[in-house]
Simulated scan of single mutants.
Amino acid sequence: MNTEKFKSDLGQTCLELDAATTQVMELVNAGKAFGAAWHAAIERERKAYQIVHWILDSPIVPKMGAVDGFNDLSPYTEAEQFDLTKAMDRPAA
Rank of each mutant, 00 (worst) to 15 (best):
41 A>R: 01
36 A>F: 05
58 S>G: 15
30 A>V: 04
53 H>R: 12
19 A>C: 10
23 Q>F: 00
76 Y>P: 07
58 S>V: 03
68 D>N: 09
60 I>G: 08
3 T>G: 02
92 A>S: 12
17 L>T: 07
73 L>K: 12
11 G>T: 13
73 L>R: 10
4 E>I: 15
50 Q>V: 11
1 M>S: 14
20 A>C: 02
90 R>P: 05
10 L>D: 05
10 L>W: 07
83 D>H: 05
11 G>L: 05
44 R>E: 09
43 E>G: 10
44 R>P: 07
44 R>Y: 03
74 S>V: 08
30 A>I: 02
7 K>G: 02
75 P>Y: 03
56 L>H: 03
46 R>W: 04
82 F>V: 08
22 T>C: 04
58 S>I: 02
38 W>A: 01
1 M>F: 10
57 D>M: 01
80 E>Q: 07
51 I>V: 10
33 A>M: 00
2 N>P: 02
14 C>F: 15
93 A>P: 12
8 S>P: 00
59 P>A: 15
54 W>A: 10
72 D>P: 04
9 D>Q: 07
71 N>W: 11
88 M>H: 12
25 M>L: 09
89 D>E: 15
42 I>H: 02
51 I>R: 02
50 Q>N: 15
83 D>R: 02
47 K>C: 11
32 K>W: 01
29 N>Q: 08
69 G>E: 05
41 A>G: 04
62 P>R: 11
56 L>G: 02
73 L>N: 13
24 V>K: 02
31 G>L: 02
83 D>A: 04
9 D>V: 12
33 A>P: 01
32 K>N: 11
46 R>I: 05
44 R>L: 06
9 D>T: 09
71 N>H: 10
42 I>W: 02
18 D>M: 06
27 L>P: 06
24 V>A: 03
8 S>V: 05
36 A>E: 12
90 R>A: 13
85 T>P: 09
13 T>M: 13
32 K>V: 04
18 D>H: 12
76 Y>Q: 12
87 A>C: 13
87 A>R: 14
70 F>P: 00
6 F>C: 07
3 T>S: 12
12 Q>C: 01
21 T>I: 00
50 Q>G: 14
10 L>K: 11
92 A>R: 05
77 T>G: 13
53 H>N: 15
69 G>C: 02
92 A>P: 01
10 L>M: 07
67 V>H: 03
60 I>N: 12
15 L>V: 15
66 A>S: 13
35 G>Y: 05
91 P>E: 11
37 A>I: 01
34 F>V: 04
68 D>G: 07
74 S>K: 06
52 V>N: 05
20 A>P: 00
84 L>R: 10
40 A>Q: 10
16 E>K: 11
73 L>M: 13
23 Q>L: 10
88 M>T: 06
84 L>I: 12
17 L>K: 03
1 M>P: 12
52 V>Q: 04
32 K>P: 05
5 K>Q: 14
50 Q>L: 14
19 A>W: 04
23 Q>S: 10
34 F>Q: 06
88 M>C: 03
24 V>P: 01
59 P>L: 06
40 A>F: 00
52 V>G: 04
35 G>V: 02
32 K>Q: 09
57 D>W: 00
31 G>H: 00
55 I>N: 06
56 L>E: 08
5 K>L: 09
83 D>S: 06
35 G>K: 04
15 L>I: 14
68 D>L: 14
84 L>P: 05
37 A>Q: 10
25 M>C: 01
41 A>T: 03
53 H>G: 12
92 A>W: 13
76 Y>C: 14
37 A>T: 06
44 R>V: 02
93 A>I: 09
